[in-house]
Design a protein around this nucleic acid. Structure first.
Lengths: 211, 211, 211, 211
DNA sequence: AATGAATGAGCGTTCATTCAT
DNA sequence: GATGAATGAACGCTCATTCAT
């Protein structure tokens, strides 16, 4: 057997392994999304994936571990779509930038419904590690928003009277609740008009509801 | 034994029974608040209440039932403090009314921390009945806010451009998140300045963050 | 309910609990003795005791714990029967004292066949705690024998050439092996003549086999 | 391809196969010795041998089978070193012959520590086949000792009062326990002075401890 | 022959609920 | 009504062995 052959085989084996792992992950995602963490038995996951009990434990350490991995994935994706939010005095109109950012976040959630459902509704109190990460994620988001608002105030884009901490919390909550109602509420992804909703959020939280 | 005697005895017995029931409920609240629903064992509740295992099942049908009852209680209290929010053209300045309403809601949460923690963080996916009631509660709140915003628009108090549905969702989310961070975050109730926070919420969601 | 009544009830309840516990212990002993530690399933124990799965865990923390308790019991009994071995210059002839001591030990083993079987054949490598206790037990016995031999040498009852350590080990091994072959070998306890065997052991280890 | 060629190839293949087999056996010995039978997983053995899971089952039928083979090997070695023990009225002084025999046995054990540890401490209750062989081995040894003592009595070398059965058991136990304490106890093989220990055993069991 | 991914029977333990006293 | 011992279904996880490549 030549080295090239072995490399090829190893590469293929690794690829298959990764595929299989991804498939189990995907299957688990479905079940977790449908039944929630606690109602989901390892038996459900392996049934959904069509694998044997032991096989599950080849790819994942535990039920908890696979759940954590799913969550970590979503958090990573969200972080990526959030990072783009910027108050830099770029050429694009400020408000449009905000709309784009929010829209991107909404789309990320929209494309990951099952995970979003878990993240928003099941992910607390299951496990210390999960809790810690979730809190960390929200804390980072909050800190980012506070900073953005502060920058905005310096640039005269945000009103000086605004309480940075509370306002950041309000925006966070607003987006989260919109995701909860609009994204998870509509049965199919296409029902959900990210552009319109993002615009409405920016309008409501940006200009306020009062005249 | 006269009827009067029996009445007296029955009344006293009923009173004792009610007291006992309330005490178990209270004990359960503590443990649920501290450990969350799933980490709480019936053993924890009876230990906290100082009763025997069987006694628990005399007063409550199941672990689930007692949890549901606690949640129902909080929802009832919240409904009571929310109902007062009104857009009627009373004498008090409109914004001040809003601040007062939000403050009342925040106070209700603040006074019921243990329950609030459960409501916001644990109450989904446990039980179909619980889920149904929670959704119903939030739906009612949302409907109420939509109606209020519509009224406000008619009266010229709310901007016409505001998307009632999304805006209502934003406000709901904002308040919820503030409760989550500010109420549950501060270690003791007194640390939490309901007036200041309510004012900040109204400022942020009412006037918007942008200048 | 009077205090006396309660005391009575509590006492009776405790007595029943103890009886039940002892019964489960006894049942476990049988199964462990027959099948060994690893072949014994908790299912076997509860089947033998005629109790439900959960009941087992009311009385014992784990399969390991019940085994440890059985072993501890035997070790305690053995210690009690060994303690009597003494080199004090009492009135009874020295050799007769030794015979009596060995006989007592053999009898203890003989009366506890199931446990003895476990102790001699299964009790190593199962559990760190068990191993530690067994080693401790044998160490104590060995130390005791070394001391006794030293005393004997001082009193002129034991030959000066004897290597205390090795001799103690030999005696320990001799008795243990005799128990293994003679006690566990004979099907029924009555088949085993403790007096004769004890005398033979003392003769072999005391006077030696060589002429 | 000529027959000679094939023969050569086959021979070489067989040699490689045997080497590989021996290496796995050796690796298994290490892990069994370190962790004991039950704590040793097939995973540990293949990791130690650096082979794949399936490969293990090409060379050995099961975990149990490889263990049995190791044990059989030790028993064979022991038998070989024991066979030399003889009461024949050879030229060498009788006692010196005994010392030499015991020393040889002790050395065999000392050179096979890992196996000895298993033999003395783990080898019972694992498997019927193992148990049967162990018992057979000890029975043969015992029978041999009984015979030797009988011969000794006929030759006037062994006291007539000695109970052959019990005395044989005592000697067996003495040696076994000495191995257990002295051989397994000392960390390195060189710490163990086989000559001295053998002499002490013969002194203790031969001349007895009493004066 | 060698590999290692797949298998699945089997186990110890938990805990909400029941029920005899 | 109060008690708490008893119940047993249910679960997550292990690991010796198999078998397609």
């Amino acid at each position: 057997m030549t080295l090239a052959q072995q490399d090829g085989r190893t590469r293929r084996a690794n690829a298959i392994r990764e595929q299989r792992r991804a498939y189990i992950l995907e299957s688990a995602l479905q079940v977790f999304g449908e039944r929630g963490y606690h109602q989901t038995r390892v038996a459900d996951i392996i049934a959904a994936a069509g694998i044997a009990r032991g096989t599950f434990y080849i790819y994942f350490e535990s039920k908890n571990a696979i759940f954590l991995e799913l969550l970590t994935g979503l958090i990573k994706d969200l972080r990526a779509s959030v990072v783009g939010v910027s108050m830099s005095a770029g050429s694009a109109p400020f408000k449009e930038q905000l709309v784009a950012s929010i829209r991107r976040v909404l789309q990320t959630f929209s494309e990951r419904r099952a995970l979003t459902a878990i993240l928003l509704r099941q992910a607390v109190g299951l496990d210390e590690e999960v809790d810690r990460r979730m809190e960390e994620f929200y804390d980072n988001l909050h800190r980012f928003l506070v900073l953005s608002l502060a920058n905005g105030q310096r640039l005269g884009l945000v009103r000086d009277e605004v309480d940075q901490g509370i306002a950041a919390t309000c925006i966070l909550g607003a987006v989260q609740k919109v995701v909860e109602r609009e994204v998870l509420g509509s049965e199919v992804a296409s029902d959900f008009d990210a552009e319109r909703v993002a615009r409405a959020i920016i309008d409501a939280t940006g200009s306020g509801v009062l005249s």
